[in-house]
Write a protein that binds this DNA or RNA. Structure first.
Ligand SMILES: [Mn+2]
Ligand SMILES: [Mn+2]
Ligand SMILES: [Zn+2]
Ligand SMILES: [Zn+2]
Lengths: 143, 143
DNA sequence: GCCTTTCTTTAGAATAGTTCTAATTACTAC
DNA sequence: GTAGTAATTAGAACTATTCTAAAGAAAGGC
């Protein structure tokens, strides 16, 4: 069984859990995110998907991305007011935004550190999520 | 000497350092941010300033806010794709976004913690800034 | 297998927040 | 005062995203 088939099955399961249907559009959008994990924008995803399925619309790409986010298969990532980027990495991680190259890098976060960060919250603050973002410059081009 | 006068002097200094002029618009925008530190949007600042200076334009408010940010007197704060909010708190701090009330709270960050967070960056990553944002719900209404 | 209902996709219009443009006004330097 | 520069202003333009309404696809009942 191929990786794509496994992903498709996992996706179908998650969608079903939310009462949603697996569609070719949702599958291909998810596959593209998994194939090139460079935090693309909706426009970039649209361009990549269009190459394989020319009839897809931008609205559908937005719909699919929202759906994937709501199923917790994909994270929406924002830097200032730039276009939203999409990340299929489900491990706890921060984002490093390279201002020079525009590239976004995943930075794994040890659970201990996340605990420490959460512990700065005074009594009465219940955080559902913590986001850590670095801005700067990275030396290597990397993958 | 009044607090407002002191702020105005500090502002004039910072502006001069950047080769910019102190103007009534820049002063009043900065004063409004200092007076009510609730992380207002540009529109909200516009409404507050307009009450005291009815001829000011929204474009000018945007210009002044950008100027204050570029002088490092004010921080621009973004949550997802919502309108940018403005924060005159210069201490190192994180933001807690209360999804229920829409309020934004400042969370002071001990320097030691910031160091720890920066230390997760692999060699080659030079961060000019670190942003920490919590999303959740806060118990008390607070200021 | 049809019928009905519900979900999804699609193209294009609409929206929100912000920036740009070009004209006017206000300073500053000489 | 005059010339040159900087700042403000109103409105147009722009970008990313969501909405709308129509058409298409899938599922369930019988
Ligand atoms: Mn950035
Ligand atoms: Mn939020
Ligand atoms: Zn990521
Ligand atoms: Zn703040």
């Amino acid at each position: 069984m191929s990786i794509a088939t496994l992903n498709a099955a996992a996706l179908a399961q998650r969608l079903a859990d939310s009462g949603l249907r697996a569609t070719p559009q949702r599958e291909i959008v998810y596959d593209m995110l998994l194939k090139k994990r460079d935090h693309p924008t909706a426009d970039e995803v649209f361009a990549r998907v269009k190459a394989a399925r020319p009839t897809i619309s931008l609205a559908t790409v937005y719909n699919c991305l929202q759906t994937l986010v709501s199923c917790d298969l994909v994270r929406a990532v924002n830097f200032e007011r730039g276009p939203t980027r999409y990340c299929p990495n489900l491990r706890p991680h921060a984002h490093f935004h390279d201002e020079k190259s525009g590239q976004t890098h995943d930075i794994d976060l040890p659970p201990r550190l996340l605990e420490k960060v959460r512990s700065v919250l005074p009594r009465g603050f219940a955080a559902k999520s913590v986001e850590i973002t670095f801005h700067g410059q990275a030396r290597h081009a990397s993958r």
